[in-house]
Design a binder for these strands. Sequence first.
RNA 1: GCACAGGUGGCAGAGCGGUCAAAUGCACCAGACUGUAAAUCUGGCGGGCUACGCCCUACCAAGGUUCGAAUCCUUGCCUGUGCACCA
Length: 390
Amino acid sequence: MTTSFLGHIFRGIENVYSRQELQAKCQKKKPLRIKLGVDPTAPDLHLGHTVALNKLRQFQDQGHTAVLIIGDYTAMIGDPSGRTALRPPLSEAEVKANADTYLDQAGKILDPKRLECVYNSKWLHAFFQNKNSDECLTWVLARVTVKQLIEREDFAKRLRQEQPLSMLELLYPLLQGYDSHAIQADVELGGTDQLFNMMMGRDIQKWYSQKPQVVMTLPLLEGTDGIKKMSKSYDNYIALNDKPEDMFGKIMSVSDALMWKYYELLTDKDLSALKQGHPMSAKKTLAEFIVTRYHGSGASQKARDHFERVFSQRDLPTDMPEHKVSHTPIRLAQLLVESGLASSKNEARRLIQQKAVEADGEKMIDDRELTIHSPLIIKAGKRQFRKIIV
RNA sequence: GCACAGGUGGCAGAGCGGUCAAAUGCACCAGACUGUAAAUCUGGCGGGCUACGCCCUACCAAGGUUCGAAUCCUUGCCUGUGCACCA
């Protein structure tokens, strides 16, 4: 049985193509080269991105080499996977800046000792330019059939729905596949939406008489809404550089069912013990663990205290943003707007009408005039506080 | 290039001369309920006005027709599809 041999490697994965191949590769004493390709398309990472990074770290812990490919070249093309529309290509400068923050944040998860980090422009540039060698685009293009590409589900879907699909996007899987050949990957990790691209890597490696990589797909992590995959564009993400309190709060707002998936994909913790206890305490443990990883234990403890104080006990937070009134007396709606608790007066009035506003613990039921002489605590909704000073 | 279809609020998508600040769904905000859960239910969801009403800006852009246009016409821009030997 290879379970012990492979450690946590099979935890939380969606599928492996194939287990036998992976086990065979592991028999050899040589460390494997584990590929993870990331396109620096977004400036900051969220927990969804860390699923694959965690897996990569587990491989490192087994003595294997992580090869992190920063897709600076491919980012300028844009991965069409799972997309229904063409995405705008990024500029060189954007890609560069994103790559820097990416590495910075990925560094919190990966072990730098067993890490190789490469930019795929290093070989893809030549791949596009070369004419007479095997290492060039035309050589590969001659071997891929159109049928193969357009049968792919998300491409087929776009064609059916009369959505645009550019040649460039069609090319994307080939480039990702070529990356695998370029770095001699033994294993590639990626989300389930990457399956096609990763399989293409196997084909391409074979064409170059290389042993095909093992493809390991990881589930996509749902975002805080519990339905769609975590993504910046759905605004359901938990960013690694969210403030500790926010990060803690967002994790707590995840449904119980989803919490277990978070545990499985984001931690190495043993679930059976945790499932015995109260779900809420399990969730707090999870939130604490994750906040600690990205912000340290001090911040994590503070975030937990803040959460328990404000939400469980419905008490005031220990510190809150201050706002100096522009004048006094002042109408309540005006005050809500200028302190940033409402985006317009109409919205402020709505909040008041809906009984969402409290001043020093007293419910405000109309837009009255307030005279402020000592600091006043305004609460708008469940989580927004402001200390009003004169 | 030619033909056809289309461009509406964060998204999807109705409306096709007045009753449209624009149906409906999603997202979002607030309230109730709770473990700040989730689910559910209720209300809201352009801006401004001491206001059960009034005003302003909005349906790709610019003109035009009309008492009146998101709705009709013209032009432009953009998008998609089809055709491109027989047509």
